[in-house]
Nucleic acid binder design. Structure first.
Lengths: 151, 151
DNA sequence: TTTGGTGCAAACCGTTTGCATCGCT
DNA sequence: AGCGATGCAAACGGTTTGCACCAAA
């Protein structure tokens, strides 16, 4: 409990001071959005954050949540679970395999590895449920984009 | 090359015979969509498949691509790269960590593991680009959902 | 003839944007 | 007064759906 409060405060401070450092005004709405996201251990979407904050601040709008959350992401103060805003992409490879995804162009490259297929997950995970499939997602910059960068 | 043709045929057969087995009619459009997806090593989205198939079959509609692709996914004949149709979810945990995602309810649980943070990727990946971040995504059924199943 | 599949258009939903207003400083 | 931040409403892009038509069994 005490431990939990501490973590929340750390998250909250990271977000608010991060915004301040970036020269972004700390408005009431932004503070409340930070508080909401920091206090959660689940992974809410924009709408969930909006509804939660609206309890305390009935005038807030969903747009402000979107704008604030997107600044937080751009500043690296929070993360996203999946690649937002992209369209669904299909994969005809249904054998176990892994992905290297380029952060710049979004291209996904497959790679295979028997070793990685047999990864042993920590005990902790067994307490969550039954694992059916384990995949690795490596992110970085692909050579195509790296080449373009050095023009 | 020969190797590649073989793989494509395998994928194509898997898709078409899978549809047949499921009692779904093998129409011209569906066959072409299967052929297109099977012949690709990249990860096209619905629109890319649509444009490619339209070259050969100018009357096909985007709707049919969506419908066919969604049957293929439901039958497990192709996979998706990311969880389609879901909204973006935020994560106040920016430390390196991994996810266990429930296939039933979509809930995402964090877990940490120093071992897994230091995973060694195969040589193959180095040829693709510079890796900045490696995360594990385990999928399965969480205990909450498992409980509900046995009502 | 019946049934499922298709194309079209409209709805839908999450997200973004243009614009007028608001509230600090 | 000036400027960024906000709320509103409308736009947007990917996806789904209702409906009438079509084609194969």
């Amino acid at each position: 409990m005490e431990q939990n409060d501490k973590r929340q405060n750390n998250n909250f401070d990271r977000c608010t001071s991060g915004l301040r450092k970036a020269g972004v005004k700390l408005t009431h709405q932004r503070i409340e959005i930070c508080r909401e996201i920091s206090g959660r251990t689940d992974h809410p979407d924009a709408d969930a954050v909006f509804h939660a904050v609206r309890q305390r601040m009935p005038t807030i709008s969903l747009d402000t949540v979107y704008r604030t959350v997107s600044t937080l992401i751009n500043l690296g103060l929070i993360g996203t679970l999946d690649v937002a805003g992209e369209s669904a992409r299909f994969d005809n490879n249904i054998d176990p395999h892994h992905h290297f995804i380029c952060n710049r162009c979004g291209e996904a490259y497959d790679f295979q590895s028997e070793e990685l297929d047999n990864i042993v997950l920590p005990e902790e995970v067994k307490a969550l449920g039954t694992v059916l499939d384990t995949r690795i997602q490596a992110r970085g910059i692909c050579f195509e984009c790296a080449k373009k960068d050095q023009h």
